[in-house]
Amino acid sequence: MREVIIIGSGPAGYTAGIYTARAGLKPLLIASSVEAGGELMKTTEVENYPGFPNGLQGPELMDAFKAQAERFGTEVLLDDVIEVDLKGDVKIVKTGNGKTFEAKAVILATGAAYRELGLPKEKELSGYGISWCATCDGFFFREKTIAVVGGGDSAMEEANFLTRFASKVYLIHRRDSFKASKIMQERALNNPKIEVVWNTEVAELVGDGRLSGVKLRNTVDGSMSDLDLDGLFIAIGNDPRIWLVENQVQLTEDKFIKVEGRSSKTSLPGVFAAGDVIDPTYRQAITAAGSGCVAALDAEHYITGLQ
């Protein structure tokens, strides 16, 4: 049996790896097979992570996190956790490639998954004009007209990034102001290729086999309009990834994993949670990393107490 298993490989997961490894707990970190590194793998410039005054690329930062975790003995497994049983003293974790692991403690750092618009045709047009990854797909929209939906930092970043390729980027937002940080907002508002469409939501996705446009609804007066588009990038936020554990640990009203006070303790002994999966408010790389550290220290304390 292992001392501790960490599920997730974003800033929270890898930081938990660094701390538990340095505590001599030989952590197994199950990173996912195709999404290892988490959200930041799809980001370009990271300018607000302390210690890097000139900024760096998201994937570069995550490679550094991973290297630091591995340096102290974290075992990183590229596999997907598909089932857990966390109720007993021995925690059981099963993966997509058919492996079963046991541990005294588990740290859940599964992060958050992008939110869908919830409109008909969204699935069938995904990859055919609808995209969830500007850094992956922007390249295919050279000199095209596209739109980004959202009002947070990710929407601003994507819109700005996409102006490298597209001739025109509409930024569609349902309110009359953005939630994004000032600096990111200003960049978007000052970019001549970006046109903000305020107080507007996407009501319908138009296209047969390939997106050709959207129908928009004004959120103030309800009026409808058509917008022809080659591409639509959706950045309307994320939902905590809880499906693995939702029937085992207590959740908050908003469906985040519930933790006790400022700790990482979930409703089950020996089960800790960190990062975006517990955080409805801040959701930054640095807060996730801090949260991963908390979980590692809590797990270490718990394991010591078992002896």
């Binding site: 996912s32 097979s33 195709v34 999404e35 997907d80 997509g96 490639n97 995904s126 990859g127 055919y128 004009g129 995209s131 990854c133 992956c136 797909d137 295919f140 929209f141 390939r210 591409g231």
Partner: peptide, 28 residues
Amino acid sequence: YGITSIPALHVFKDGQVIKQIIGAKPKP
């Protein structure tokens, strides 16, 4: 082949695309 999102996995048989898979997916 109308690629606008990668990874895009297209299966060809007899010169025709007969299956398209979009996005990175786990092995199973």
